[in-house]
């Protein structure tokens, strides 16, 4: 395999990783909660898209907004009912709580959807450009992932809700004094995090098979991307995602595919120690 192909694979993978991680990063940055549910939200989105395609014949691109809204509602409710009650507690409490909720969601999914790997097969062929070979469905996936990430960036920058979220992230007390209802912003933020996960899952189901066994691995990607790129910013997640995609692609080529993930994690540990703010430092979420 030659270098341009490795880079192309890395970028496609990286765009998907950015989309996976951006919601997780938002929740961590704003609520200061490590959301262990994130992997299950992604798989839930993927499964919903698959079932809409398999049973109703709907294309993932069409159902994406619906799936995203369903997962948003679930995220909003979970935050409003449970996580909000302990949102200021130490990380041990919040992490354990989201893990407990994740066990319930995971169990529901394995019982009702079973753990069979499922994938939406679009059969759109593949492209070859200057010696780089790329299946078209992956290109569509990459495009969608970048589009979603860009949309979130716009929402954060230009909408009232987005500005309110940024304000809460910067200074919770000051935001409350400015008339922002912090608890509602927390629930919306968590909902948006879930929404991005559901949308990312829909995109993923078009490209790779999804199964409940993958929840942990998606969560792991979100950790690594957040630490590499820096917490709580859309550009950070994008940089982290692309970096991880390229690192895994090159590491897979150099050391064999079984070591690609290990290299990513080792790099994350290293970065945690050297530069815990990530490649792009922590500033406001904008």
């Amino acid at each position: 395999m030659d270098i341009p192909q490795i880079i192309a694979n890395g970028i496609v993978l990286g765009a998907l990783y950015a989309c996976i991680a951006v919601g997780f990063s938002l929740v961590w940055g704003v609520l200061n909660v490590i959301n262990m549910l994130h992997g299950s939200f992604i798989i839930l989105g993927g499964y919903l898209a698959y079932f809409a395609w398999a049973h109703l014949g709907l294309y993932p691109i069409l159902v994406l907004p619906v799936v995203a809204l369903i997962v948003f509602a679930l995220g909003y409710l979970l935050q409003y009912l449970f996580i909000n009650k302990v949102v200021t507690a130490p990380v041990l409490t919040t992490l354990t709580l989201t893990f407990g909720l994740d066990m319930i969601l995971y169990n529901l999914m394995t019982v009702y959807f079973t753990a069979t790997p499922r994938r939406v097969t679009l059969d759109v062929g593949s492209l070859e450009l200057a010696g780089v070979f790329m299946p078209v469905d992956r290109l569509i996936g990459m495009g969608l992932a970048l589009l979603l990430t860009g949309l979130l960036y716009l929402v954060m920058r230009a909408s009232t809700i987005g500005r309110a979220i940024v304000a809460v992230r910067m200074d919770r007390q000051a935001a409350a004094l400015m008339g922002i209802r912090v608890n509602r912003i927390y629930a919306i933020t968590f909902g948006i995090g879930a929404l991005m996960a559901g949308a990312a899952g829909t995109v993923f189901a078009m490209v790779f098979p999804v199964t409940t066994n993958l929840t942990g691995s998606f969560l792991g990607k979100a950790f690594v991307v957040c630490v590499i790129g820096g917490l709580g910013s859309v550009p950070g997640a994008l940089v982290g995602g692309l970096a991880l995609g390229l690192i895994e692609s090159f590491a897979g080529f150099l050391f064999g595919p079984q070591h690609a993930i290990t290299v990513g994690f080792l790099l994350m540990l290293l970065l945690l120690l050297v530069r815990p703010t990530g490649l792009i430092g922590v500033k406001g979420y904008e």
Binding site: F82, T96, L97, F99, G100, M103, I104, N107, L108, T110
Partner: peptide
Amino acid sequence: LQWNRAILGGIIVFLIF
């Protein structure tokens, strides 16, 4: 057997609250 994981998750949620 089938709901084992969910029940343990429920115990965790109960414990926290």
